[in-house]
Simulated assay, not measured.
Amino acid sequence: MSSATDVIGDAFTRIGEGVLEVVDGLSPDDLARRITPDANPIGWLVWHLLRVQDDSVADVAGAEQVWHSAEWAQRFALPFEPDATGYGQSREDVSAVRVTADLLVGYARGVTEATHDFLRGVSDDDLDRVVDERWDPPVTLGVRLVSVIADDLKHLGQAEYAKGLL
């Protein structure tokens, strides 16, 4: 029988694999193409979902984000604040995310590995630990991880849809 943390780990594995599949064979122009003038392009969607996962998991793990520890911020060289994750970005900010598939794949592998490293030390009982008291009710580790998974899957699905339209 699988534990809850095994199931959560499997979900993050599938997200990582989905990222590899969705960017496979796409050029930087493909990754930046918008279906409509205000639609988020594949490259931005994938960068954003990885940034959210990296930021959120590092926060609950009490660890440094892979974005910084493995110098992905420098490699991406985006014109944003170093801790930007994509939340609240303008149309122009979204357009500034010009990336390659290889860059996204490398970052995805690092984020997925860091997520699994963290989960290896998490028991099912740990999932009840409160990690954010700003909400009513306070957010537990389990709820935060499921929230990240849900957000990642929405953006991955959007990216897959956009790729289908290319």
Rank of each mutant, 00 (worst) to 15 (best):
A58L: 01
D10H: 14
V111Y: 03
G43R: 07
A159T: 03
D30H: 15
E21Q: 15
R75F: 00
V122N: 04
D128K: 12
R34T: 06
D132I: 02
D132E: 08
S69W: 00
L145I: 07
S147K: 06
A11N: 11
D55W: 13
D128Q: 13
V94F: 00
A84M: 09
V105N: 09
W44I: 04
I42M: 12
S56T: 14
A108V: 02
S95Q: 10
D126K: 03
V99S: 04
A58N: 04
D132K: 01
W44D: 01
S123I: 05
G43D: 13
D6V: 05
L165W: 10
T5Y: 03
M1D: 12
L166S: 08
R109T: 08
G142P: 06
G121D: 09
V52T: 05
G142R: 08
L20G: 14
D117Q: 15
G164N: 07
G142M: 05
V97P: 07
F12G: 03
L166N: 07
L50E: 03
A70K: 00
A70I: 04
L20P: 08
D29E: 15
V22A: 09
S3V: 07
A114K: 02
R34Y: 02
V105F: 00
A77F: 11
Q65C: 01
K154C: 11
G16E: 06
A32F: 01
V111T: 10
G62N: 04
S69G: 03
D102W: 02
R129A: 09
G43T: 08
